[in-house]
Amino acid sequence: MSTTKRYRSCILGTCCVPWSGTFDFEEDIFRRSVRHQIASGIHDLYIFGTAGEGYAVTDKQFDEVTRVFLEETHADGIQSMVGLISISLPTVIERIERARDMGARCFQISLPSWGVLNDAEMEVFFRETCGRFADCEFLHYNLMRTGRIITGDEYGRLAEMYPNLVATKNSTADVPRLTSLMKDAPQLQHFITEGGFPIAAMMGECGFLISYISTNFARATEFYQAGRAQNEAKLASISKDFPGLIAAFKDAVGTSAHIDGAFDKMFCRVHDPEFPLRLLPPYSGVSDTAFAHYLELLKQNHPDWLP
């Protein structure tokens, strides 16, 4: 039995934020990067996930980047989403209010991570986000950094309480977890990363959260469309390259960087040689040397995954 989803199935892409050598926002490069994704067919975009350093930006940086992002995504058929990562719920509320005043109506939230929320605290969090802003839509980013993974059954109950909870992000290939997401919260659109997307797609409609195969948007779209068509053979054929792609960026980076954005900014630079790799301090980005090694590995072993 099919269930109508609250958010469309699509490829969901992140927009990394480029910083200058003095950690000022490189607005022109950012605008160019957003436009490139849209021109490449990625029409659902978000800022300030873990790859977009949502955990690190100041309020001033949050406002500056959000304003530019909403300008670039203000077009028919383009869905923009503003991410919110903070250990302070009042800060999350204030940022929703400011972004909402700029025109944002779709937000990505994740649980505070200073301490693992118990059931009562989790209820307060969703009440003060989804419940407080009934005219907005919310995607929940379900990641282990918060110390708590929300289950499919819990999502089902939250979805009943909050009609504006529309989607989730889950980086998993665990079959029982994916089965629960699809079965116990069928009204939500679940966005799954490369490893788990073929599994979830064979269970029913889901979204694709693009990560390391964003180096080639055309092939990534082919992968997503194979999932939409439940073409298991094609999914398997494309997925066979994934272990090598993962090995390439891990081999290039080694132990020099460990934050998500360090990898994602490499994927951005594959498309734009001027995209800076640095992260907001204290976190370490990837060096130019490491990126050059990564690009060479792609050229030698995976040329089909270059733009």
Rank of each mutant, 00 (worst) to 15 (best):
I47H: 00
I47F: 07
I47C: 03
F48E: 09
F48A: 11
F48P: 10
G49P: 04
G49E: 04
A51M: 04
A51P: 03
G52I: 05
G52V: 04
E53L: 02
E53I: 07
E53D: 06
E53M: 05
G54A: 10
Y55Q: 03
A56G: 07
A56W: 00
T58C: 03
D59K: 03
D59G: 08
K60N: 12
K60A: 14
K60D: 15
K60S: 11
Q61H: 06
F62D: 00
F62N: 02
F62M: 03
D63M: 12
E64V: 05
E64S: 14
E64C: 07
V65L: 04
V65E: 01
V65M: 06
V65P: 06
V65K: 00
T66P: 11
T66E: 02
T66R: 02
R67M: 08
V68H: 09
F69D: 02
L70W: 04
L70C: 08
E71K: 11
E71L: 08
E71A: 11
E71C: 09
E71F: 13
E72T: 04
E72K: 00
T73A: 08
T73N: 07
H74S: 14
H74Y: 14
H74F: 13
H74G: 10
H74T: 10
D76C: 07
D76I: 10
D76M: 10
D76V: 10
G77V: 10
G77W: 13
G77H: 11
G77P: 14
I78S: 06
I78T: 10
Q79N: 15
Q79T: 15
Q79Y: 13
Q79P: 06
Q79S: 15
S80M: 01
S80L: 02
M81H: 07
M81L: 09
M81N: 11
V82L: 06
V82K: 04
G83Q: 01
G83H: 00
G83W: 00
G83T: 03
L84Q: 02
L84K: 01
I85D: 02
I85Q: 05
S86E: 05
S86A: 07
S86Q: 02
S86Y: 01
S86F: 05
I87H: 14
I87C: 14
I87G: 11
I87V: 15
I87Y: 12
I87D: 14
S88P: 07
S88Y: 08
L89E: 12
P90A: 13
P90F: 14
P90M: 10
T91V: 15
T91L: 15
T91E: 14
T91A: 15
V92Q: 01
V92G: 07
V92D: 07
V92T: 13
V92E: 03
I93P: 14
I93C: 13
E94L: 09
E94H: 13
I96V: 14
I96A: 09
I96C: 12
I96G: 12
I96T: 14
E97S: 14
E97I: 11
E97Y: 10
E97P: 11
R98I: 09
R98K: 15
R98G: 12
R98D: 15
A99I: 06
A99D: 09
A99V: 06
A99M: 04
